[in-house]
Simulated assay, not measured.
Amino acid sequence: MSQLALAMEASIERAHMGRIERGERVPNLVAIVKIATALGCITTALVQQFERQLVAAGDNGK
């Protein structure tokens, strides 16, 4: 799915979606739910994937 298609499906501005994708912005809970719904997954699956990526990158949130 393209960034534009995801942004449109999630009702989030494309520029904001780009900033989220690049890690320049952290989405709020409403945006996370919208993105998960647009991707056809449950919110917890999206958050768990993000957690795995943080751990793999060596950033455990501390």
Score class of each variant (00 low, 15 high):
M1R: 14
M1P: 03
S2N: 11
S2T: 15
S2A: 09
S2C: 06
S2Y: 10
Q3K: 12
Q3Y: 05
Q3D: 03
L4N: 14
A5G: 03
A5K: 15
A7D: 02
A7F: 02
M8K: 14
M8S: 12
M8A: 05
M8D: 13
M8P: 01
E9D: 11
E9G: 03
E9R: 15
E9A: 11
E9Y: 09
E9Q: 14
A10L: 05
A10H: 14
S11G: 06
S11H: 14
S11C: 02
S11Q: 13
I12S: 03
I12Q: 07
E13Q: 11
R14D: 00
R14H: 10
A15P: 11
H16K: 07
M17S: 00
G18N: 05
G18Y: 00
G18K: 01
R19T: 07
I20K: 05
I20Y: 09
I20E: 02
E21M: 07
R22P: 03
R22I: 00
G23Y: 01
E24P: 01
E24F: 06
E24A: 14
R25S: 11
R25V: 12
V26P: 08
V26T: 09
P27E: 06
L29N: 08
V30L: 07
V30Q: 07
V30S: 04
V30G: 01
A31C: 07
A31G: 03
A31S: 09
A31W: 02
I32G: 00
I32R: 10
I32V: 11
V33Y: 15
V33S: 11
V33M: 13
V33H: 14
K34R: 12
K34C: 04
I35T: 02
I35P: 00
A36Y: 08
A36D: 10
A36H: 12
T37H: 15
T37L: 08
T37M: 03
A38Q: 06
A38S: 10
A38D: 05
A38G: 04
A38C: 07
A38R: 02
A38K: 04
L39V: 04
G40W: 00
C41A: 01
C41M: 13
I42L: 12
T43N: 12
T43C: 02
T43L: 00
T43A: 04
T44I: 07
T44V: 07
T44R: 15
A45G: 11
A45S: 09
A45V: 10
A45N: 13
A45Q: 14
L46I: 01
V47W: 13
V47A: 13
Q48S: 05
Q48V: 06
Q48C: 02
Q49N: 05
Q49C: 07
Q49K: 10
F50S: 06
F50H: 13
F50A: 12
F50W: 14
E51C: 04
E51N: 13
E51K: 14
R52Q: 12
R52S: 03
R52A: 05
L54N: 10
L54M: 09
L54D: 01
L54G: 06
L54Y: 15
L54K: 07
L54V: 01
V55G: 00
V55P: 00
A56F: 05
A56R: 06
A56H: 12
A57L: 04
A57F: 09
A57S: 04
A57R: 11
G58M: 05
D59I: 14
D59M: 11
N60W: 15
N60A: 05
N60D: 04
G61N: 11
G61A: 10
G61P: 03
K62N: 09
